[in-house]
Simulated scan of single mutants.
Amino acid sequence: MKIILTQDVSGVGEPGDIVDVKNGYGRNYLLPQGFAIPWTKGAEKQITSIKRARTAREIRNVDQAQEVKAQIEALKVTLRERAGDGGRLFGSVTPAEIVDAVKAAGGPELDRRRLQLAGHIKSLGSYQVQVRLHPEVAATVTLDVVADK
């Protein structure tokens, strides 16, 4: 049985790995426990998201988190959005858009679930966004939302 692991399974593999296991082991243990998902053609997108989350979680110690924090806080992140006459956005800024803007500004790839927004960003201006890099370390990204011409 071909499956995709979603969690680390001792002796089998890590999250995102595609492995062949015996039918009973996969059907009776790995799938019901949520350790794996069945391999399908459409599961390729899920594999990439699991691997992206794994790289975002690679910040293991406080020293590495402090280095990434310094790198993030030195960035100038600008996000161009469509806005109306009063500076109100058409829609709102999503965490995925913020992550893409940080990466485009030369920063590291972040996990969107680690962002802490005070509320919805629905107008032009400057915002402070918290990023939890480690349980003891949080970085602050200054995000400038400007009108797209």
Rank of each mutant, 00 (worst) to 15 (best):
T94H: 11
R114M: 13
V77E: 06
E136G: 02
A96L: 09
V9N: 01
R112G: 12
G91T: 09
V129N: 04
R112S: 06
G42Y: 07
A139P: 05
T142Y: 11
N61I: 05
K51H: 03
T142I: 09
L143T: 04
V137W: 01
G42L: 03
G119P: 09
G91E: 08
I98N: 01
A36F: 09
L124M: 09
V21H: 02
H120D: 15
A101L: 12
L5I: 06
N61R: 08
N23C: 05
R82L: 11
T6D: 06
D20Y: 05
K22C: 05
L124Y: 10
S49R: 14
R60T: 12
D63G: 05
G106M: 10
V19T: 03
T78L: 10
N61M: 03
V99T: 13
S123L: 07
K45D: 07
K149H: 01
N28S: 13
V12H: 04
K41N: 08
D144V: 13
A53T: 05
L89T: 05
K69F: 06
R57S: 13
S92F: 12
A101E: 05
Y29L: 11
V145N: 03
L31M: 13
A65N: 01
A83S: 15
E44D: 14
G107M: 10
D100S: 13
Q71E: 14
Q7G: 04
S123T: 15
A74N: 10
L75Q: 07
E14P: 03
T94Y: 05
A118S: 15
L117M: 14
Q128C: 08
S123C: 00
E109H: 08
D20W: 04
D148W: 07
V141E: 15
Y29E: 07
S92D: 11
Q33P: 00
V146Q: 09
E136T: 00
R132P: 04
T6P: 00
V131I: 13
A43N: 10
D63S: 05
E67G: 05
